[in-house]
Amino acid sequence: MKKRVVALFTAAAMLVSMFAIGTVVSAEEEEKDIPYVAVSLPPAENAWQANFAEMIDKKMAEAQEEGVLTYSLKSSQDAADQMNVIQTFKDDPDLDFLVVLPVDGAQLTATVEEVYDSGIQVIVLDRDISSDKKTAFVAGDNYGCGVAAAEFIQDYFKDQDEVKYVNLRSYAGTEIDLSRFNGFNDIISKDPKFVNLGEADGEFNSTAGFEAMSNLLAANDQIDFVYTHDDETTTGALTAIEQAGRDDIQLITGMGGTVTALREIAEGTGPHKMTAAYFPADMAEIAIKAILTYAETGEIEKELLFESYPITKDNVEEFQDKAYE
């Protein structure tokens, strides 16, 4: 009798353990299905980046709430710090995806390659690395932003014989600066009626935009338009123009899509009549979609370049809800 009880108890215990083990295994399997994503960002050095950090955090949190992924997010001060952060992420055995917006794509190439080689899927955002060892590259079309601005400018001055302009760049020589510069220059430089008077660095902010523009104004008596690479730079340049009391500037274009820029374009009373934008919220959404698509199908397009929008008075209202500050 005793033996029977012991045997029954043992059998019951085994059943319970098997069930428990089964539950753990299936829970693990279930958890394994949900991708774990690490997000590494640069410092929020301007309004666009600050808004992007906010947007990707918000959208990742929403996705986590829906139970489709789990994530961890970390911003870095510089390229060296970002390298350390990525190495730390890589050492986590549960990591499935690394989403990285590099401080500097070239500097982070070796680190990102190492992560990719270890079997983790890597989504590079906005600033590309100098290697093919990545799952996908998601970026706004900076070259297209330059093209859009140039086409708008060409159309705006179609009836003028000679057009003098200045260029406010943003951290001259960086990848974004060169893309925006080349997109604009490849079109404008082919048209001999456009005369480049000079350039200065607006550094993606209004104070530098103000100082750069005030120097350009002092050096040039007649400027027809100002091409800037950034909306905050445009804000500073407009203040300098207003302060100098200059009324020769007919047009200033920007890039980015800030609340101030869209308001000025909507008002239509000043020279700020156009900006070219790709919005932080769009990029965050595309990055998350890319992760979920790959997690489900194991396939993804290698390069996801999304369109930039030329924003003028005609269509500005469509973008008001995406504007950032």
């Binding site: 410092p43 929020a44 301007n46 600050a50 902010n205 104070t207 530098a208 905050e232 804000t235």
Partner: peptide, 16 residues
């Protein structure tokens, strides 16, 4: 002086 120029402050670039 700086704030009165632009009547705006950037948490990252102001005073950089």
């Amino acid at each position: 002086i700086e704030m009165s120029r632009m009547v705006a402050v950037s948490s990252v670039s102001s005073g950089q």
